[in-house]
């Protein structure tokens, strides 16, 4: 990072550390309160400095002169850390009520997510994870997902807690986000590969020939994702529930009728015809393996030849299976 571009307080933090930052700021605020506040309210201030100066802000009672961004940031900290005293001073945190809140969350994430000065088990980390979840879930901000994915794998290598961050990542309900995890299948680091497999619900590769295996598994996964993306939904299975979560799954009914669904709630995004509704009633009573044959075949011919698909989908289900099996076995 170019230190020249850092704010005055950030420069002290980066060069001299937390204790010096707090001491220098405290002394300055006692001597020249307006200047101390102007430093704190600097536009290019980074969140870690504000966070580290929270005790001084409290002790010197600087709340009233903070800019709206800093007030919102402190409201966010109070909410996530369940700090009632701080909450009473700065007011309640309200989601989705104004642009300042969202911009502040983005500022906290952009300037604070990568900072590791506090270690990875403390309150600071809780704030970052909470902000991430607010952005992905409440504000549906997908721009943060690449950085979140990288944070998950970095923390995992360090043995730190990742479960809340993983949860926040999947709260985006974005099938494209799976690619951000899949790319770690190609990592040379075995911890990355194991975690990527776990998050994507893939089998771990054998030790021998691992590189080739992973390249194939990566390509296969991308192919699978491309084929099923319109029919994927998020199961909301996470580490809190199970040691073997399957965060996403294919809605075979949707794939069978080739109708897109919402990955968040599994509802179809396109209306079903009366004929499709009747077909689905029978389809959904069939065993899983037959559903898979039918849905895979349906998607395949829908992509290849729409008129052929229309002919096939109007046949009786028994006839559809015979055709699908013959075609799939023939291939």
């Amino acid at each position: 990072m170019n230190r020249q571009s850092l704010s005055a307080l950030d420069q002290i933090r980066v060069r001299q550390g937390k204790a010096r930052l707090q001491k220098i700021f405290h002394g300055l605020a006692l001597r020249n309160r307006p200047r101390a506040l102007s430093y704190l309210n600097e536009e290019k201030l980074q969140f870690p400095s504000l966070y580290l100066l929270m005790p001084e802000i409290r002790g010197l009672d600087l709340y009233e002169d903070l800019n709206p961004r800093n007030i919102e940031a402190l409201k966010t900290c109070a909410k996530i850390l369940d700090d009632e005293n701080l909450g009473m001073r700065v007011g309640p945190f309200l989601q989705q009520d104004n642009k300042t809140t969202q911009q502040t969350l983005q500022w906290i994430f952009a300037t604070g997510a990568q900072w590791q000065g506090q270690g990875k088990t403390g309150a600071y980390d809780a704030v970052i994870d909470g902000v991430t979840a607010l952005l992905t879930r409440a504000y549906e901000d997908k721009n943060v997902l690449p950085a979140v994915a990288d944070m998950i794998f970095t923390r995992n290598r360090q043995g730190y807690f990742i479960h809340d961050l993983v949860w926040a990542f999947f709260q985006s309900f974005d099938p494209d986000a799976l690619k951000l995890v899949a790319k770690h299948l190609l990592s040379r680091n075995s911890q990355d590969v194991e975690l990527a497999c776990k998050l994507l619900h893939l089998p771990l590769p054998q030790e021998t020939g691992r590189g080739a295996d992973m390249q194939k598994q990566y390509q296969d996964y991308l192919t699978w994702l491309e084929e099923n993306k319109s029919f994927l939904y998020f199961t909301r299975e996470y580490f809190h529930l199970t040691s073997d979560p399957q965060p996403v799954d294919v809605d075979m009914s949707a794939k069978y009728v080739c109708k897109r669904i919402s990955p968040k709630n599994k509802k179809t995004l396109e209306p079903l015809t009366a004929g499709e509704q009747r077909s689905l009633q029978v389809f959904e009573k069939m065993p899983g393996e037959k559903q898979k044959i039918l849905s895979d075949y349906s998607y395949k011919i829908h992509e290849q030849d729409l008129s052929l698909w229309h002919q096939w989908i109007q046949k009786q289900l028994g006839e559809q299976i015979i055709i699908a099996q013959a075609e799939l076995e023939g291939n």
Binding site: K79, D129, G130, A133, L134, A138, W167, R236, Y238, L241
Partner: peptide
């Protein structure tokens, strides 16, 4: 068993469900 809480407050992920 598990009580799931699909609409949990993002700032309190510990309430995403109860084992």
């Amino acid at each position: 068993r598990y009580f799931a809480n699909p609409d949990v407050d993002p700032t309190t992920p510990e309430w995403q469900g109860e084992n």
